[in-house]
Simulated scan of single mutants.
Amino acid sequence: MAIDWVEARETAWRAGFESRPAHGHASFGEAIGSALAAPLRSASDLPAFPTSAVDGWAVAGPGPWTIDGEILAGSVPGPIDAGQAVKIATGAQVPAGCEGIIRLENAHVDGTAVSGETAREWREAGEEARAGEELLAEGTPITAPVVGLAAAAGYSSLDAYRRPLTSLVIFGDELLTSGVSREGRVRDSLGPMVPHLLDAAGGMATGTIGPVADTLDDHVEALRSALDSADVVCTTGGTMVGPVDHLHAALKAVDASYVLNTVSVRPGFPMLLARTPNGRFIAGLPGNPQSAVIAVVTIVAPLLAGLRGLPLPPLRETVLAEDVPGRGESTHLALVDPTGRRIAHHGSAMLRGLASAAGFALIAPGTAAKAGQRVPLVPVPGVSA
C-alpha cells in the first residue's frame, strides 16, 4: 500500500540516520556537506596573538613618533619603546609596548616622524575564542565557512560522518546514450542528470552502470556490481510490475527488504526504497525523468541526510501566484517558478519545466490551493536557490 509523502520522507531519513556509519577523521573535502560527529573546539586562542586590524603605524608613548622599522604579516616583532613608530600591515602581530595604531590614511608623515590620531585597532589574543572553547556543536552541518573556521582553529581534518558513496543503475533496452531519439528508442536523460543531483544532495557519485538489458539476470548482475562499491544505489525504471520490470525480483535475488514500497504522490509514482542485509540501500526511481527527480527529493535526499548525521532537510515556502489543483488522495508536487506561478511543460516525462523551476509546490492530499496561498516548497538539490 502506498504511504503518505510526508511519512515517506521521514521514513527514508530515519532509515539513513539509524544506519549512519561510524564516524572518524575526514579531510575537509570528505567532510563538507556532512555533519560534525563531535563538538569542534579551538586548538588555540583565536587569534593566537594580537593582530592588527588595519594598515598603519604601531606607536608607543606620546607623539609625534619617530619612524623605526616595519612589521609584516608572518613575522615576530620585537617590543617598541615610547616615542617609537613602526609601520604595521593588516594581520601582522602587534608588538609588545604598543599603545595605539594610526590608520595609514589618517597618518601625517614628516621626514622620519609620523603623527595622527591613535586607536586600539587590533584584535586581542583570544578575542574570538579561547583554546579549548567549543566553537560548534555536534551535528552542525559542515559548510565552507565551517571548514574555514576549523582551519583557523588549527585543524586539517574533522570528526565527521563521511558522505555516502552513491551509484546509479539505468534500466531499459529502449534507451540511447548519444544522439537523438530514433527508431522507437529514446535518449537517456537520467544517466547524465541524476549523479549531479546525488552529489548536490550530499552523496559522492562513484559511477553509472547501464543501460542494462531488460532481463532479470542482467538486473541482478548490475545491482550486485553497484552494491560492491556504493552505500546507496539508485536505479531508474522497472518500479512497476510490467513484463520487463524486473527490479522487484532483482531485489529479492540480492536479499533486499523494503523500507517503503510506493508513495502516494503525483507525479513520482511508483518509487521504492530497500535495504540489503549489510545495510546498503537501493532507491528505485521511476523511469519518467520528472518522476525520478521527485523520487530523489522524496526519499533519496532525506536518506543521504540521515546517513550523514544531519536532520531531515527542511522545506521552504512559496506564495502561489495562481490556483493549483490537487491530485485526489495523493500529494501533488507542482512545478512553480520563483514567483509562485505554475510552470508549463510539467508532465512526468518532461524536463523543460524543471530546468527553470524554483522547486515543487506541495499540495496536500485531498486539497487544492488558491492564488495567494502560502504552501511548502520542496527544493531540488543543486537547483533551488
Rank of each mutant, 00 (worst) to 15 (best):
residue 352 R to L: 12
residue 225 S to K: 12
residue 253 A to P: 06
residue 130 R to G: 11
residue 247 L to Q: 06
residue 11 T to C: 06
residue 85 A to W: 01
residue 245 D to T: 13
residue 262 T to I: 13
residue 352 R to S: 03
residue 294 I to M: 07
residue 103 R to D: 09
residue 319 V to L: 15
residue 161 Y to G: 01
residue 204 M to Q: 15
residue 100 G to N: 12
residue 121 E to I: 13
residue 321 A to F: 12
residue 164 P to D: 08
residue 310 L to S: 01
residue 63 G to F: 09
residue 65 W to M: 14
residue 107 A to W: 02
residue 143 T to F: 09
residue 26 A to T: 10
residue 41 R to C: 09
residue 355 A to Y: 15
residue 169 V to H: 01
residue 290 Q to R: 14
residue 122 W to A: 02
residue 367 T to H: 08
residue 278 N to K: 12
residue 312 L to D: 12
residue 374 R to S: 08
residue 76 V to N: 05
residue 89 A to P: 03
residue 245 D to A: 15
residue 335 L to G: 00
residue 354 L to Y: 08
residue 214 D to K: 12
residue 349 A to D: 05
residue 313 P to S: 14
residue 351 L to S: 11
residue 47 P to L: 04
residue 270 P to H: 13
residue 294 I to L: 09
residue 192 P to Q: 08
residue 60 A to V: 09
residue 72 L to R: 10
residue 24 G to K: 07
residue 270 P to W: 07
residue 366 G to K: 06
residue 73 A to Q: 13
residue 130 R to M: 03
residue 36 L to E: 03
residue 106 N to S: 13
residue 196 H to P: 07
residue 64 P to N: 15
residue 105 E to Q: 14
residue 291 S to C: 10
residue 252 K to S: 11
residue 21 P to R: 04
residue 353 G to R: 07
residue 238 G to N: 04
residue 231 D to S: 14
residue 176 L to D: 02
residue 134 E to I: 02
residue 245 D to E: 04
residue 111 G to Y: 14
residue 297 V to N: 07
residue 291 S to P: 09
residue 217 D to G: 13
